[in-house]
Design a protein around this nucleic acid. Structure first.
Length: 275
DNA sequence: TGCAGTGTTGCTTC
DNA sequence: CGAAGCAACACTGC
C-alpha cells in the first residue's frame, strides 16, 4: 500500500511527466472517489482548463497545485495508484476508475481495486490550512532527534500505534512501522512513554534509514502499489518482518510473530524486539 | 467453497 | 473525551 516512499516515488515521476500540463476533461465510473466538491459534474467543471503548476507530497497525500489558486489532492489509501502514458500491463493496473485527460492527449489514470482512494479539489489556501493538522515530515532536514523526542513526549499508547498516527509523524503506515521497529529492535507493543533514550535513538535512526532506502528502491509492491509507469518497487527484497509470520527472524532465527494492535497487524521478532 | 483477512482514514460508539 | 470498533470495497488465500 502506498506509504511515504511510494507516494514520494509517484510524485517525483509525475513531476517529470505532467508538470505544466492542463486538465482538459475528467471521467469516472466511481463518483464516490471524488469527495470535494461532492457533485462530480461540479468537480469536472472546476477542474477543466486548470494548469498543473507544482506537484508535491505531504505525508501520504499527493498535491497538484493548479492555476487560479486551486489544488487537487489525491490520497491513494490502500490500493490506489496513479498511472500515466503507456503503462506496463499488470492485473493491478486494470482497475481504472478515474481518468484525467491532459492537453497533450495523454491520460493520467487512477487505478484502485477497492475504490477507497479520495480525490478532492480545494482552494489552495484552505488546503494548506487543512494539511497543518498533520504531524511533521520525517525526512525533513529539521526533523532532528530532538524534534522526534518532542513530538513523542506527551503521547500515550503503544509505539507502533503512535508511529502510524499521521498527526504525530506523517507518512508511516503498517509496513514501514513494522520494518522500522524490527531494525530498531523495539517491540511494537512497548508503551511509547516508557522508551529509554537508547531506544528512541534507535527508532529515530531506523526511521530515517528505512524510509530513505525505500525511496531509493522506489517503494514496495507486496500488494497493489505500482509507479506511474505501472512498475513494481524493489523494497520487497529488503523486507525483514512485514508479512513474515511463521518465518525465521533474519537476525536471530526466532519465529516471527503477528499480533493485532487496534485492528491492524504488527509483525515482530519476540526475541530481538524486547517487550 | 465460503468467509476471514487485508489496512487507511474518518465516522460512530462507549 | 479519548480509545476502540467499524464501514467503505473487492479480491486473495486458507
Amino acid at each position: 500500500m502506498p506509504e511515504l516512499p511510494e507516494v514520494e516515488t509517484t510524485v517525483k515521476d509525475l513531476q517529470k511527466k505532467v508538470l505544466s500540463r492542463t486538465f482538459v476533461d475528467v471521467w469516472t465510473d466511481a463518483k464516490k472517489i471524488v469527495k470535494k466538491p461532492k457533485d462530480f459534474e461540479e468537480f469536472r467543471k472546476q477542474l477543466k482548463s486548470k494548469k498543473i503548476q507544482k506537484i508535491w507530497r505531504r505525508g501520504k497525500n499527493i498535491i497538484f497545485e493548479l492555476s487560479e489558486d486551486y489544488s487537487l489532492l489525491i490520497h491513494q489509501k490502500l490500493t490506489g495508484h496513479l498511472l500515466y502514458g503507456e503503462w506496463k500491463k499488470d492485473r493491478v493496473n486494470t482497475y481504472i476508475h478515474l481518468k484525467f485527460f491532459l492537453d497533450n492527449g495523454e491520460i493520467l489514470a487512477l487505478s484502485d481495486l477497492r475504490k477507497f482512494a479520495k480525490v478532492e479539489l480545494w482552494k489552495t489556501e484552505e488546503l494548506l490550512e487543512e494539511l497543518e493538522n498533520l504531524g511533521p515530515e520525517p525526512l525533513a532536514k529539521d526533523f532532528v532527534f530532538e524534534k522526534f523526542k518532542e513530538v513523542l513526549k506527551d503521547k500515550r499508547g503503544k509505539v507502533k500505534q503512535v508511529l502510524t498516527d499521521q498527526k504525530v509523524i506523517t507518512g508511516i503506515g503498517n509496513i514501514y512501522s513494522d520494518e522500522i521497529l524490527w531494525v530498531a529492535r523495539v517491540h511494537p507493543f512497548r508503551d511509547v512513554s516508557k522508551l529509554n533514550e537508547g531506544e528512541l535513538e534507535r527508532i529515530y535512526q531506523a526511521l530515517k534509514k528505512i524510509l530513505k532506502k525505500a525511496i531509493e528502491l522506489r517503494g514496495e509492491s507486496i500488494s497493489d502499489y505500482r509507479d506511474p509507469a505501472g512498475r513494481k518497487g524493489k523494497f520487497d527484497k529488503m523486507r525483514k518482518v512485514y508479512r513474515r509470520k511463521g518465518e525465521n527472524c533474519f537476525r536471530c532465527g526466532t519465529i516471527i510473530q503477528r499480533k493485532k494492535i487496534a485492528g491492524r497487524n504488527a509483525h515482530f521478532c519476540p526475541k530481538c524486539q524486547k517487550l
